[in-house]
Amino acid sequence: MKNNINIDKSEVLRYMGYKGQEIEPELENSIDNIIDMCMDAAEPKYTYGYFDLDWNGDEVSLAGAGIVLPGKDMARHLYGAKYCAIMAVTLGMSIERKLMLLEKTSMTEAVILDSAANACIESVADYAEGLIIEESRQKGLYTNYRYSPGYGDFPIEAQQKLIPLLNCEKRIGLTVTGNSIMIPRKSVTAIIGIFDKEQIEKKKGCEGCNLYHTCKIRKGGGKCAEK
């Protein structure tokens, strides 16, 4: 599966707040090396499942499991969907260990690896989403985009339900703390609606990004989507 993921260097730079500054060759080198190190250390894993939906007025829940997906934004995301896919991906523990170590030995490298891992997990999420898109296409169905706990008014606490639902601990080694922090931290869960009709591809704004809450670019008033 590693053949199907990659780390986009321009993304890595963007996560670190890069705005065209001149980069010394030494730093450039270091970034390239750490991107390679990140690819080496990553143990990407994914799992996903399909779930029918129940509607109770404006509130949507997963049929059978009885799990409510709270918030207007999620209701909007799944409105009109035949059913949904729920996916979880992770880079695994060795990146976590590397980050802990680098924070003790070189903060510069830690900062770079952190960003490289962010770019990497997005790529893994793209890959898993791609599998869902392809399976749907084969059935003549259409998907919208992935929407994660913590986006809009879909609460981060939803991790507490989604991670056990997909049996993530056993299957991909992903757990969640009482404060809804995923461990390994470089992990993503998301919900994708599956429809009879083609969905107008909404441009992913900041609201639809996994780094919504932690993004340094957004905090600085910028947007990475406006390339």
Binding site: G17, K19, Q21, I23, E24, L27, T108, V111, G220
Partner: peptide, 11 residues
């Protein structure tokens, strides 16, 4: 001022 970015600050 945005003349340096994070890894440069750290270096």
């Amino acid at each position: 001022k945005g003349e340096m970015f994070l890894p440069q600050l750290m270096a």
